[in-house]
């Protein structure tokens, strides 16, 4: 398989519009969890245009009913079908995001205002989970930099920290008595990583607004890192001088590095990372493929030019 970074030339010019209709296509998800039953009205996105993106050459896009029914979102439970079943309990409208720390113009903005001036585009990315499975998902979003610029990071800012909503009333995983995770979920990037054009904040997928189980209404997507870095349902962004503590890294530093770049040569104590199962797999074929360095996004290699990636896993 070849690497297929998104080139501007591959992007068709006409605009497509985000639809309000959620998941009519996701039949399986609907019957499983009653995803369609809740009243979400992200009217601020309905009718917003986005520039469509090209599919990855030679790789099938994962069917929507799998991408919306098989999720790791521990705020709603640890089983893969828990998020599809319970994420509708989370209120995503109204939603605001606070931007703080090393910025000239800190503030808390309603998501409508936050996104008023950004151009939305579609990006079809591989998503590689640390559990050695992967999917291909068409996200709709915009570069992280477009949002950060607006708050004017200061020269001292070196890292960006993202925090997920903490609302145990609506997120049953956060109420679990046996949870090892110290909520809220926190992830972070080095500022130059966040500024890389491949790093996006997503508000939609498959031509629709994001379903709750996939991290509505705003999530990070960093395609060259393991999925747990791509934090969901963001309420706070903080620019910092020092490297922030991040959830999985603090829980099990030997298993989950801060960088968590997809790397077939560094094994994880639970899973070999040399290969992955591209979902959906079937009973008769695990659909195992070789894992590629940086998940096939070699253009990010320069970010790590003088680092030992075996130590900084």
């Amino acid at each position: 398989m070849r690497s297929a970074p998104i080139r501007p030339s591959e992007i068709t010019p006409e605009h497509v519009y985000l639809s309000r209709r959620r998941f009519i296509a996701g039949g399986a998800a609907l019957t499983l969890g009653g995803v369609g039953a809740h009243a979400l009205s992200e009217d601020w996105l309905t009718g917003r245009g986005f520039r469509p993106g090209a599919p990855i050459e030679g790789e099938d896009t994962t069917p929507i009913e799998y991408a919306t029914a098989y999720n790791n979102f521990y705020e709603f439970g640890t089983d893969k079908d828990d998020p599809a079943r319970y994420a509708h309990e989370m209120t995503v409208d109204p939603w605001s995001v606070e931007v703080a720390g090393e910025v000239a113009k800190p503030g808390k903005l309603g998501i409508e205002d936050l996104l008023a001036n950004v151009d939305l585009e579609e990006r079809v990315y591989r998503l590689r989970c640390v559990e050695a499975w992967s999917m291909v998902i068409p996200w709709i979003g915009f570069p992280v930099k477009a949002l950060l610029d607006r708050f004017e990071p200061t020269g001292a800012a070196k890292f960006v920290e993202f925090t997920t909503l903490h609302r145990p009333d609506e997120m049953r995983g956060q109420r679990s008595f046996f949870s090892g995770i110290d909520w809220p979920y926190v992830e972070a990037l080095r500022l130059d990583e966040a500024y890389h054009p491949l790093a996006i904040l997503a508000v939609g997928m498959y031509g629709n607004v994001l379903p709750n189980q996939n991290g509505a209404p705003l999530r990070l997507v960093v395609p060259w890192k393991y999925g747990f870095k791509s934090i969901k349902s963001i309420v706070r962004i903080r620019l910092t001088r020092r490297r922030p503590g991040t959830t999985w890294n603090m829980l099990q530093p030997r298993e989950y590095g801060f960088y968590a770049n997809v790397n077939p040569t560094v094994d994880h104590p639970r899973w070999s990372q040399a290969s992955e199962r591209r979902l959906p797999s079937t009973l008769f074929s695990p659909n195992r493929i070789e894992t590629r360095m940086f998940n096939g996004y070699e253009e990010v290699a320069s970010l790590y030019a003088d680092m030992d990636l075996r130590r900084n896993y």
């Binding site: 399986a28 799998y66 029914a69 893969k80 959906p280 797999s281 009973l283």
Partner: peptide
């Protein structure tokens, strides 16, 4: 469930039957 899955992949075991 095996029978159902063979008839229509995905219905019984989801996208990751092995797990």
């Amino acid at each position: 469930d095996f029978v159902r899955e063979i008839r229509q992949p995905g219905v019984a075991f989801g996208p990751d039957p092995a797990e």
